[in-house]
Design a protein around this nucleic acid. Structure first.
Lengths: 126, 126
DNA sequence: GAGGAGTTGTAAAAGTTTTGTAAAAGGTGT
DNA sequence: ACACCTTTTACAAAACTTTTACAACTCCTC
């Protein structure tokens, strides 16, 4: 019987209607076109995407992308977020959300609904 | 049943609209004209071509073409890449891509499509 | 709802690292 | 010795990252 490496690696890819990250090859595509991300930009996006839907604190981002323990007084992170947003073009607002005083959150693409469904009526959390 | 040597040797040739590598005879042609490559130039090109579409790290190139373990501080690789590019003429940009901080990638020639096809519409992987 | 402290956004400059290039030096085989 | 190939060197250019300085924004309190 064959071996399935896919079973070993947890998630090796993120994919939605517009964005496509390949964590193995460290590449990203936006509407099929390769996004030309620098290493830091990719690391940043990847970390956010891997925690899609959840807030990632500035601390965590600095820690895991930069290796800084803490105490940053420069705008390095913000500058990188900015460039990421730029490369995400019109989708930037939809994908990357600023959580004031805490960090950022990547929000996976939600296809627009054509019809109202029951879950639209309950007041949702978060 | 007969034996098919083709089944043993993975690919013994690369061919696209402009470039043609014969891995058996270690020769290359560009638009039918033989490219006069030196051994190192050929080895380098062959390795890249055999990994067409994928990044080959500097390390891997140095390792497999030069046999260096690691730790190179000279520009040997770059110089060879340069001469290769020169010999690829106008196609150089299209074929050999620099992946900053990582290595190089040979990108196979993609003929321009004249008409849209079904596969353009589905969101594809890779 | 105005003011203020603190946080994030932005543009540009400065800094760092990596790659490209030209020329010279070093080898190799005939 | 000659022709050819490869490596080294030294520097230029390009790509990427960080810093700086300030503007804009958010949240909180009065």
């Amino acid at each position: 019987m064959g071996t399935f490496s896919a079973a070993i690696i947890p998630t090796e890819r993120y994919q939605d209607a517009h964005l496509d990250l390949d964590f193995q090859h460290k590449t990203a595509r936006l509407d099929l076109a390769p996004m030309r991300l620098t290493r830091k930009e990719y690391d940043l996006l990847a970390l956010l995407v891997q925690n899609a839907g959840e807030i990632v604190t500035r601390e965590a981002l600095l820690m895991r992308v930069w290796g800084y323990s803490t105490q940053i007084k420069t705008r390095t992170l913000d500058v990188h977020i900015r460039r990421l947003r730029k490369k995400l073009g019109d989708y930037a607002d939809q994908y990357i959300e600023t959580i004031f005083g805490i960090g950022y959150r990547f929000q996976p693409y939600r296809p627009p609904r054509l019809f109202r469904v029951a879950s639209d009526l309950v007041s949702v959390g978060a």
